[in-house]
């Protein structure tokens, strides 16, 4: 039974990755070579540094993998390495909460503006309203609230009113903190 499966796995992954980088990514995605001769001037090209790093990763990961097999490192008691199925399940939940928050942050503002236009308003596109109260806050507050509340929900594993209050309070404080004193700072998503 291998004692450090994650270290060996990591070594394999990095070795493979650096080989792909060296032989496929770098040759195809960099315009200048390792050493460039350009109008009598010999210079270091853009490929030099990444190539050196890829070689470095390749060498060290092979060493690391071999050593992990030959001489597994001593673990202190209770130290676990690697991700188990609980970690993955947690990451999935976290992704949903954060992803939902970001999606709302980006799309709520434009959606509300469209809705107002549909109901007979004349706001034009969201681009024109992105510095106007209340539209400039709608996306950030909705998305930020959902993100904070959602992540608390994931960890506490239940919905509570107090978590909701904390979330809404935090988002409003942050809105005031950034947007009110500084005229030129933009809350997400208004800079894009």
């Amino acid at each position: 039974m291998q004692k450090a499966p994650w270290t060996v796995g990591l070594a394999l992954f990095l070795a493979l990755g650096s080989l792909l980088t060296l032989f496929i990514w770098i040759p195809n995605d960099i315009e200048t070579g390792v050493i460039e001769t350009f109008r009598r001037r010999v210079t270091i090209g853009d490929a030099m540094a990444p190539t050196m790093m890829a070689i470095g990763i390749l060498t060290v990961s092979i060493l690391m993998g071999v050593l992990a097999i030959v001489r597994p490192e001593p673990y202190s008691k209770g130290v676990k390495e690697g991700l188990d199925k609980h970690s993955l399940s947690f990451l999935l939940r976290l992704t949903i909460a954060i992803g939902l928050g970001l999606a709302l942050m980006i799309h709520t503002g434009p959606l509300v503006v469209d809705l107002v236009n549909l109901l007979g308003g004349d706001l034009g596109s969201y681009r024109l309203q992105k510095a106007t109260f209340p539209y400039k806050y709608i996306g950030y507050i909705t998305g930020g609230f959902v993100m904070v509340f959602g992540v608390i929900r994931v960890v506490e594993n239940r919905f509570t009113a107090s978590a909701a209050w904390v979330s809404i309070f935090a988002v409003i404080v942050m809105t005031i903190l950034y947007d009110v004193p500084f005229d030129n700072l933009l809350l997400p998503p208004n800079g894009n």
């Binding site: 993100m147 809350l187 997400p188």
Partner: peptide
């Protein structure tokens, strides 16, 4: 607090 830190950092 940590979820708030998350949003604060991203903001």
């Amino acid at each position: 607090l940590l979820p708030i830190v998350l949003l604060l950092t991203l903001t």
